[in-house]
Amino acid sequence: MSLTNLLNRFKSASAHPTPSESLSLSQLAPSILNLTITDTPEQWALYESLFLSTLRTGDDTSARLILQRLADRFGNDNARIMALQGVYDECTATNQSQLEEVLKNYTDVLKEDPTNIPVAKRRITLLHHLSKKSEAISALTALVDLTPTDAESWSQLAQYYFEISMYPQAIYCLEEVLLILPNAYNIHARLGEIQFVAAESISNSTSKEVVEKLEASLRWYLRAVELCDGYLRGYYGVKLVTGKLLEPKILAANRTIPEEKVNKLNSVATVQLNDIVAGSEKGKKGFTGYDSAEVAAAKELLEATS
């Protein structure tokens, strides 16, 4: 297979590959490693993706070889190579103390060069993994102070805040992502989700605040749908939130979106979800590529409410 063919296989893989997908990618290792090194950016990008795939499937020997070649080309002191080396060390560590050792290594590197952002990110991930959540968050806030235009850091910080139920902070971080990437519809949907969870977490379920949060959530979902047609996650959210808003315990006085509009939006979302579920199950053209788990969840929601 040629370089471009191989690269396309990696590009078409999903961001969170299933184990079988990872395995099939990882099994490309021999054919990629046997290609002559042409020293093009594409080839190194391919090496990097393959490196992660081989680590996922436990092919440490190939990973070692790939890392060696990358280090030969770009030098051991390249920030990105250092981070990849760190990933390798983390993956091959067998016990807690070895992970602590890797962490110490990261800290030493950062002490010498605080601008090594790939390693800083590895350190934060590892801290979080080692259940030092507050340390991870404070390291990440320091990182976003250094580079406040890095969307990846902000969304990761949002995730960490969300995990410890600090919803306003999580929302703040995602808003920062929107300032950098104003058309990221998945971030809009995520904001909808967080607002929804925040509304659910309020104990007094008849208060005005709940309605406010639910309506905010609905609007974020609607924006996601507006930006991306046929966005399953967006329509799922619209249907879920409108369903909550139509519950009789919601007082009419608290609403800012009239009930009939909510009703209409609910039926719009139902129609769209029905289309997507039906189309995806039949494998109709234009309905492929949906995550099967998401389609199943949508089907369940439709059955529960009908």
């Binding site: 102070d145 250094l146 580079t147 406040p148 235009t149 808003e175 929107l178 300032l179 950098i180």
Partner: peptide
């Protein structure tokens, strides 16, 4: 880096202000 990125942060806020409440 901090000096530059925070400057860009300000520009981002100004250009995409309408995206946030």
């Amino acid at each position: 880096i901090r000096e530059q990125k925070n400057y860009l942060h300000g520009i981002n806020l100004r250009t995409n202000a309408n995206q946030i409440p």
